[in-house]
Amino acid sequence: MHVIDVDRDIMEINRRISERNQRVLEENNVFGFDVLGAIGSGKTSLIEALVGRIGKKLGIGAIAGDVISDADASRLKRCGIPVIGLNTGRECHLDAHLVEHALESLPLKDLDILFIENVGNLICPVDFPLGAHRRIVVVSVSEGDDTVEKHPMIFLDSDLAVINKIDIAEAVDASVEKMEYDAKRINPRLPVIKTSMKKGIGLNEIVDWIRKESNL
């Protein structure tokens, strides 16, 4: 009989690859943003809007995670940026290893900013860093105004919270103020920007934040 004291952190496997991914980005002077959030909250719309606003001045690329389709990747390609679509299959999140391969296929030398859109999910992606420098969490009023307080971990771990679809808050009976208050209560350091991708509200603020964080 062997008693083997392994004492090894399994999450370290992903973490180490994510650190390697970050080094690859840095070697190519690319600043990475994770875009996480609930299903349908507006993650792809956010990236599209940002490409529209800063895509002429800066080289933008994207990695789009989808469970099975390549719908988001195709949408982003239509914005005229290089995109790698990743299917996670039965998994509910991207992992650093998938991203590592995607990085090999992107023209990193031409990029300043990389957006990594994760699969729509407020829980699983939290435990799997991918290598981006900052994390943006996108929620929208249509998930209900208790969605922030129900998912504190992702707000503790993000660098920017976007509360989207404020144009329909009244129609779905959601309090944007409550959502913002909850996010600040969970993480008082977290900047919160209220947006409507549809009406173009709040996007300038996001652009300012992106430029400040990436120094671009």
Binding site: M1, H2, I4, D5, V6, D7, I10
Partner: peptide, 15 residues
């Protein structure tokens, strides 16, 4: 958060 996001395989008993 300082820690709490680890998942450590501590020990195996094999034969």
């Amino acid at each position: 958060v300082l820690s709490g996001k680890e998942c450590v395989l501590k020990r195996i008993i094999a034969e």
